[in-house]
């Protein structure tokens, strides 16, 4: 836990493209959580996407161009918050790889150093959930691969959610295996992507949960689109929505 002194008061938010377009409620929840904790949230107007589709999907040039944009737009912020494990991982681990020595490697390193995934940030600054007492049903947690391996989210999220009374977070079997989203993977190999989604959904539902909650809008959208197509009794919530006391959708 840090003292009040090294706590940034004004933070930049990279809302991420999927949350912006497909899950705006989670973005508003993120802002409410941060503002309630006393932070001023700045949302640069020029933001679109962090570049992951190009980065993992083949187009290095575009990924690099978008990385440059993001680096510029947050150049003056003390801290940057990203409510998505994989987009946070993109800024923290992959932008530096896109900027060869002699290009923008210092800017990339500076951005990486001040970027946090939302849960990691909330945990580090001891931010309290707005939801005090949980009455919403049984919740199973879904780590995204990036939040396990790239953004130090896994423990932080459990710690922050642990502050909500009556919330008994369940863990699914095979929690470390991928849900099969993978960005363009889901587009290029749709059958495989659905198969992996079904395996993941089976593991999540085997816990008896009513709600799956996670830190990554990509995985959640992927799982939700499959859950809805199969008409399964499992609802989906982004961790910001749960912490901010939103009703499950």
């Amino acid at each position: 836990m840090s003292s009040r002194l090294d706590t940034p008061r004004r933070v930049g938010l990279l809302v991420t493209c999927l949350m912006d377009a497909m899950r705006p409620a989670a973005a508003f929840a993120t802002v409410r959580l941060l503002e309630a904790a006393g932070f001023t949230v700045d949302v640069p107007r020029a933001q679109t996407c962090c570049g992951q589709p190009g980065y993992n999907g083949a187009d290095e040039q575009t990924a690099r161009a978008l990385a440059r944009r993001v680096m510029e737009m947050f150049a003056d912020h003390e801290a940057v918050i990203v409510p998505s494990g994989s987009c946070a991982g993109m800024l923290i681990h992959h932008y530096p790889k896109l900027c060869a020595p002699g290009t923008a490697e210092h800017a990339a390193a500076a951005l990486a150093a001040k970027t946090s995934e939302l849960c990691a940030f909330l945990h580090r600054h001891d931010v309290q959930p707005l939801e005090k007492r949980w009455r919403g049903g049984k919740v199973v947690w879904h780590d995204s691969c990036a939040s396990l391996r790239e953004s130090s989210t896994a423990e932080a999220a459990r710690a922050v959610l642990g502050k909500i009374d009556g919330l008994d977070l369940m863990e699914a079997a095979e929690a470390e295996s991928c849900c099969g989203f993978g960005g363009l993977f889901a587009v290029k190999l749709p059958e495989l992507s659905l198969e992996l989604a079904d395996r993941k959904i089976a593991a999540l539902m085997a816990t008896g949960a009513d709600i799956v909650c996670g830190p990554d809008p990509g995985c959640l959208l992927h799982l939700e689109s499959r859950i809805r197509a199969r008409d399964l009794p499992l609802r989906v919530m982004h961790v910001a929505e749960l912490l901010a006391g939103e009703a499950p959708s």
């Binding site: 705006p24 409620a25 659905l194 959208l221 809805r228």
Partner: peptide, 20 residues
């Protein structure tokens, strides 16, 4: 919203960046 074994949830309202 229905395609290839999926049914995308419709977003609740306009994008965050539009409403913000």
């Amino acid at each position: 919203a229905r395609a290839r074994g999926r049914k995308l949830p419709a977003p609740a309202g306009a994008p965050f960046m539009v409403r913000r």
